[in-house]
Design a binder for these strands. Sequence first.
DNA 1: GCCAACGTTGGC
DNA 2: GCCAACGTTGGC
Length: 159
Amino acid sequence: MNYWLFKTEPGCFSFDDLKERPDMTEPWDGVRNFQARNFLRDTIKLGDRLLFYHSNIAEPAVVGLAEIVRAGYPDTTALNPNEEHFDPKSSADKAIWYMVDVHYCEPLPRVVTLDSIKRNPLLTDMPLVMRSRLSIQPVTEDQWQIILTMGGMAEEKRL
DNA sequence: GCCAACGTTGGC
DNA sequence: GCCAACGTTGGC
């Protein structure tokens, strides 16, 4: 199992929006960055867990946990001209873009702000700090444990 | 709202 | 295949 960090602008789609999904499952679509696409298509597997991160707000932060309930499959929004993320170069039999399905798990007792992540010398290797624009990022097990500890999650719930 | 960083596009 | 122009992201 691997760990990830997924970024979203809460004004567009927030952690609470995920919680309120009727079946608590959300197709994570619209990713149009090749590096992130490669993770979605090739690396992210069923059962992987992710940090849900709110970006582009006054205090960007990791706010909760979610998990992958369906591994990468072609992003249908790329095929629909009415969709914001329509890509004429993509087609049904030759998909360029991929999405996964995510499921709400639980909020962190305390959000972990970008500022506190940057201040933690153990987390300076995170892409969030180095390459902040990547919207889907791998997280090491060590980083996962540290952030959950910072977020006040009890040890027995971190596994 | 500004703007730096950086990913993508397209001319050559 | 380089690189300038352009568009987008996202912190501040």
